[in-house]
Amino acid sequence: MDTLIIYCHPYAQSFNHVVLERMQSNLNSQGINYQLIDLYAEHFDPTYSAEELSLYHQGGTVDPLVRKYLALLKSCQTVIFITPCWWNSIPGMLKGFIDKVMKEGSNLSHTVTRTGIKGLLTNVQHCYVLTTSTSPTWYLRFFCGNAIQRVFVNTTLKQLGFEHRKWLNFGEISWSSPQRRQRYLQKIAQYRFK
């Protein structure tokens, strides 16, 4: 598998869902082999149980989706996240995905050393984070702490070993015109990956 899409939105009539459909059409037209993780449709539970957390340092899990998702992450070269930006950051569902799926262990997602985290998902050579937000992108960057770029993209994903990370945000979605939305969707439909 070349590419893994991680989709995080509960509403099938959302603009994010249209972005997902355009992305899938794009990848199909380029002949790129991909797999989709739809966190809400697959009923992923983003919360830790006491039993799940007790297995963390052994790299274990009681959730079969965690094993499936980690195996997919370890076998792809490109990861594409499609998610809204809620309250200036990623949704709780996506945060829970990172919390539960990224397992510590020598053949898992990372190890912890005295100097920090050593990411083991270095097979991911390209990562794209596509978000939508009510706030303008400049407002997220300069007045809200730039959490998507600074924390999620440049820290968390970097620590896990992801290379060549890029964030694309469609801001002011609530006030966007149909024409602006169409221009963005056309860009997604024609985007060349890698």
Rank of each mutant, 00 (worst) to 15 (best):
L55D: 05
Q24F: 03
W86T: 14
Y40V: 05
T78G: 04
V19F: 01
R114V: 03
T113H: 09
G31P: 04
I80K: 04
H17Y: 13
S54Q: 13
N107E: 15
N107S: 15
T61R: 09
P84Q: 13
D45T: 09
Q13K: 15
Y34W: 07
L20M: 14
K103Q: 11
A41K: 12
G105N: 08
I98Q: 12
V18G: 14
Q30M: 10
I80P: 02
C85P: 13
V62D: 06
S54A: 15
T47A: 12
G60K: 11
Y48Q: 06
L70D: 01
D99Q: 12
Y69P: 01
H57D: 11
D63A: 11
E51R: 12
Y48H: 10
A41D: 08
F97D: 06
E21P: 05
S109E: 09
D99W: 10
Y56G: 04
Y69C: 09
G60V: 08
K68A: 11
N33Q: 03
T47C: 06
I90D: 03
L72P: 00
N28A: 14
V66E: 03
V79Y: 00
P84D: 04
Y56S: 12
S106I: 09
K100S: 01
A71L: 03
V19W: 02
L53A: 12
G116E: 04
N88M: 14
L72I: 00
L108A: 15
Q77S: 08
K95Y: 04
P64K: 15
F97C: 03
Q13D: 15
D99V: 07
V18E: 15
L27N: 02
Q30D: 08
V62P: 00
V112S: 02
I98A: 12
K68Y: 07
G96Q: 07
L27D: 02
F44Q: 12
G96T: 05
E21C: 10
L108Y: 07
L20W: 07
R114D: 10
M23P: 05
G60R: 05
T61G: 10
T61E: 07
S29H: 08
V62M: 13
R22M: 11
Y34A: 05
F15A: 07
W87D: 14
W87H: 12
L36W: 02
C85T: 15
T83E: 04
L36K: 01
L65G: 01
W87E: 14
I98W: 03
T111M: 14
V62S: 13
R22N: 13
T47M: 12
L70M: 04
L73T: 00
L94S: 11
